[in-house]
């Protein structure tokens, strides 16, 4: 007679499937461009399907966190035929350095592209040094 601790291979497989089914999906790491000029650093991230309401941008302990979830308008009874994109959430983080003014971050989201500008502290911006002709 089977005791409770014994699990048939079939049941184990089923429970593994169940665990996988309920697992949190792995977020997509959005493609980014990062550039720096005298004023600060600008990050552009591809986050298609994310609207302003579904975007979460924050700084936690000097880490810039980009998060969002995409919404696809799928008909109710739709089945997948093919999928390059297998997750509906995005997440990417960047460590910031001290010369950046994290409380003055500006962000813009348009057509699924997030642009984040992080200014540098004024006193740390490069100054052009003029060389006077003798």
């Amino acid at each position: 007679m089977a005791t409770r601790s014994e699990i048939s291979p079939k049941a184990a497989a089923a429970s593994a499937r169940e665990r996988r089914g309920t697992a949190v999906e792995t977020p997509i790491r959005p493609a980014v461009d990062i550039r720096e000029d005298g004023e600060g650093i600008t990050v552009c991230a591809d986050m298609p399907g994310v609207s302003k309401e579904r975007l979460e941008l924050r700084v936690e302990a000097n880490t810039l966190i980009l998060e969002g979830s995409a919404r696809l308008e799928l008909p109710e009874n739709a089945e997948a035929l093919y999928a390059d994109v297998r997750s509906s959430t995005y997440r990417r983080t960047f460590a910031l350095s001290g010369e950046l003014e994290t409380d003055k971050i500006e962000a813009n989201l348009k057509d699924g592209v997030l642009t984040v500008h992080i200014p540098k502290r004024r006193e740390l911006r490069p100054r052009k040094i003029d060389v006077r002709a003798a």
């Binding site: 591809d46 008909p75 009874n77 999928a83």
Partner: peptide
């Protein structure tokens, strides 16, 4: 190849096929 732009998902129902192209900033 995987990673080509734009990424594509396709879903279908008995009535129609829905194609999604992930083309941000276009």
């Amino acid at each position: 190849p995987q990673g080509s732009f734009p990424a594509v998902n396709i879903g279908h129902t008995p009535e129609r096929v829905e194609i999604y192209l992930f083309a941000p900033g276009v």
